[in-house]
Design a protein around this nucleic acid. Structure first.
Lengths: 361, 361
DNA sequence: CACTGTGCCGGAAACGTTTACAGCCGACGG
DNA sequence: CCGTCGGCTGTAAACGTTTCCGGCACAGTG
C-alpha cells in the first residue's frame, strides 16, 4: 500500500490547532494565542473560539510538553505500593501534586536496587519532571546515579552523611526513628515495664538499622541493660512479626514488646493473644509508623508516628519548590516523631507526657 | 535580553540525536536507525554508538511519544488510593502494566463525579494511552463522557445494562457481590445462625446497592425473613462500622453480623469485643473483600473475596488487549467470589463446603 | 555491456504545540 | 505632514524524535 503521506490540509484524526486556525481563517499563531488567553482582537477571538468549539478541539498534552520541556508529572518509587506506610505517603504526595497541577506516576521497585538505579537513570529520558524515591537500602550505585541525574529527586529516608552532593542538590526528608524508639521505650519504662523486647525488621535496611540502634540507646538511657535474647528480627511483615513473637515467647517472659512496624506489631498481637497473654496487662505492645492499622486492631495499638503522610507531603513540597527554583541549596528535613498512646500499652500514668530522653528515672 | 534563539549547531542542554549524528559524521536518520537497532553498515553502527556513548545520549521520551502517538502510560482513577481494596487493585495493575512496558499514573477522585467526568474528558489530551476507572457512583454524565472519549477505558464496577455502548467499546470488569453475599449468608446459616445482621455502606453507591439486594435475596433463599432492624448503614470505613454496630447491639441480639466491607467488619469486631461479646461463639462475623486486614485481625476475619487484585489484573489485561486491537468487541468479565472462612465465623461443620444458593435447608 | 535488484544513506517531512520576529495599519504627537 | 508607537497578525523556527522516499554504489544476471 503506497498511500501518500497525509498533508496538512487533510481532515483526519483529532482536530489540531491548524484545523482550528484553518476553520477560523486565521494563522495558527493567532489560534494558539487565543486558545492560551493571550492578546487578540475581539473578532479573532470569537472566530477562533467558535471554530474550536465546533470541532471539539482539545490541545495535545504531549506536543505541549515537548515544546514546554516539562511534563507536569511527578513520579514516586517505593518498594511496595501496598505497604500502609507507603500508601499514606503516596496519598499525601498525590494530593500535593494534584493541587499544584501535577499528575503522579507510581513505581513499585520491589526493593530491587538495580531496578531503582535503572529508574533513576531513566529520568534522563525526561518523561517526568521530578521523582520522590524511598529506597529501603541505599547502595553506592544509588548515590552515583543520583549525582548524574538531570532531574530533581527527593529522597525519603536516610542518606549517608558523606553522600557526594554532586553537581545536583538532592533534597532529603527523613524520619527520626532513633528518637521515636526512645519515646516508646521511655513510655514503657514509665509504665513500670523492665523486660522490653524488640521485634525488628532486617538489620541491613535503613529503618531496621536505625531502629535497632535507637533501641539499644534508649535502653541505656533508661538504665536498662540490653538482653540479646529479647531481640528478634524477621522482615517487616505481619506473618514475620507473628512468628518472631512466637519464638520470643517460647523463650522469654517479656513484659513489653516494641515492634519496628505496625505490621509486625499486629502480628505480635496475634501471637500474644493466641498464647493467652492479656494486652496490656501481661505484656504491653507498641508499634511504629502509626498507620491506620493501629486504630483498627483490638485492643487499639499504641504506635510511634514517624509521620509517613507528613514526610510524603514535605517531599512533594520540596520537589515542587525545587522545580520552581532549581539552584537553591539542597535541603534536609527531619520530621519529629510522636508517640500515640492507645490501649495496648495504657497504664495508670498514661496521661503523663512521655519523658524526654536523657532523663534517667 | 535579546539573545538569539539557539541554532542547531549549538551544544547546549542534553545531547540530542543531532548531537550524536554530527559527532559521528552521519545524518540524523542514520543515527536514529542505529539507535533503534534498524539496519546500518558495521562502520556507521560503530561510529554512532561511540558518539552516543561519548556524550551520554539518552532519547527523549516526550519527543518519541509525540512522533509515535503513544505515551506508554496507563492511568488508574479510584475514589481513594488509600482504601485497601483499591490498593490491591492498583498493585495488580501496576504489575501488569510494568511487565508490558507501561508506566502507571494514579488519580484520587475523592468520589467527586464531576472530577471523574473531567478526568475522562481530559483523556482527549492524550497524555495517557488508556484508563482504568472505578467510579463508586455512575452518573449519566459518566456514560456520555465515556461514549465520546477517544482513548480506551476499562470500567471496574457495574455499569447500567442500557449503557450506550457508543462508538467506542468500553470493557467492563465487575465483582459479583450478589453471589458473594449469598455465600456468606449460606455459610452462617449452615453454622446455625438465624439472626444475621447486615452492616452496609451507603445505598446510593454501586457496591452498597448490590450488597443490599444480595443480602435480601440470600435471606429469602435460606428461608429467613428480613428484619429491617437488623440492617445498619454508614459509610465504608472503620469508624462508621464501629458506630453502626454499636447502634445495632444497643437494639438487637444478632447471632451473626455480615459486613459490606472488611473495614466495616474490623470496626464491628471492635464494637463486639468492647461490648464483651465473644467472636465467634456469641456472634459470628464475616467481612467482604478479603483484604490484608482480614488476616491481621484477631480473631482472623472470615471474608468474601471479591477478587480485587484479580479484577485489577483483568482490567489491566483488557486494556492492553484493546490497545493492541482497538476494534474488538467490548467485553464484560465478572469475577467469581470466594468465601474465605477464618476464625471469626468458624463453626463445627466449617469444613463442609458452603452450600449452593437455592438449597433451602 | 546494459539492466535490475539490493543495501545504505541523507534530506526532509511529520508528529502538534508555542513563540520570536517582522510586517502592517491606524493613531497620535510634534 | 512625517515619524513613532502600539496593537494585531502571520511566517517560520523550534522542541527531539521517527520514517518516507529518492539517490547512489555495487553486485548479480542476461
Amino acid at each position: 500500500m503506497s498511500r501518500k503521506r497525509l498533508q496538512h490540509g487533510d481532515q483526519n484524526g483529532p482536530p489540531t490547532v491548524r484545523t482550528v486556525a484553518a476553520l477560523a481563517g486565521v494563522s495558527i499563531a493567532s489560534a494558539s494565542r487565543v486558545l492560551n488567553g493571550l492578546g487578540a482582537s475581539a473578532e479573532t477571538e470569537r472566530k477562533v473560539r467558535e471554530a474550536a468549539a465546533s470541532v471539539g478541539y482539545v490541545p495535545n498534552a504531549v506536543a505541549r510538553s515537548l515544546q514546554a520541556r516539562r511534563t507536569d508529572m511527578l513520579a514516586l518509587a517505593v518498594e511496595d505500593i501496598g505497604n500502609p506506610v507507603y500508601v499514606a505517603m503516596m496519598r499525601a504526595i498525590e494530593e500535593v501534586a494534584a493541587r499544584a497541577g501535577y499528575r503522579l506516576q507510581v513505581h513499585a521497585t520491589g526493593a530491587d536496587p538495580a531496578g531503582e538505579v535503572e529508574l533513576i537513570d531513566g529520568l534522563a529520558r525526561r518523561y517526568v519532571d521530578g521523582l520522590v524515591i524511598s529506597p529501603i537500602r541505599v547502595t553506592a550505585a544509588h548515590l552515583t546515579a543520583l549525582a548524574r541525574v538531570p532531574t530533581p529527586v527527593v529522597v525519603v529516608g536516610s542518606l549517608p552523611d558523606d553522600a557526594p552532593t554532586g553537581a545536583r542538590p538532592v533534597d532529603n526528608v527523613r524520619a527520626d526513628s532513633h528518637t521515636g524508639v526512645a519515646l516508646a521505650v521511655a513510655h514503657l519504662v514509665a509504665g513500670g515495664r523492665r523486660r522490653i523486647a524488640f521485634v525488628n525488621g532486617p538489620l541491613d535496611t535503613v529503618p531496621g538499622a536505625a531502629r535497632h540502634a535507637g533501641y539499644l540507646a534508649a535502653l541505656a538511657a533508661n538504665g536498662l541493660i540490653a538482653d540479646p535474647a529479647l531481640i528478634e528480627t524477621g522482615d517487616f511483615h505481619h506473618a514475620a512479626g507473628r512468628e518472631a513473637t512466637r519464638r520470643l515467647l517460647d523463650r522469654e517472659r517479656p513484659d513489653a514488646i516494641l515492634c519496628a512496624n505496625d505490621l509486625i506489631a499486629v502480628g505480635a498481637l496475634h501471637a500474644l493473644l493466641a498464647a493467652g497473654k492479656r494486652v496490656p496487662e501481661d505484656v504491653a505492645l507498641v508499634g511504629m509508623d502509626d498507620t491506620d492499622l493501629a486504630e483498627m486492631s483490638f485492643p487499639q495499638l499504641s504506635s510511634v508516628s514517624l509521620g509517613s503522610a507528613e514526610r510524603g507531603r514535605i517531599a512533594a513540597e520540596l520537589l515542587l519548590r525545587r522545580l520552581a527554583e532549581p539552584t537553591r541549596p539542597a535541603q534536609r528535613v527531619t520530621v519529629a516523631p510522636e508517640l500515640k498512646i492507645r490501649a495496648s500499652s495504657a497504664h495508670a500514668i498514661a496521661a503523663v507526657p512521655a519523658p524526654r530522653i536523657g532523663e534517667t528515672p
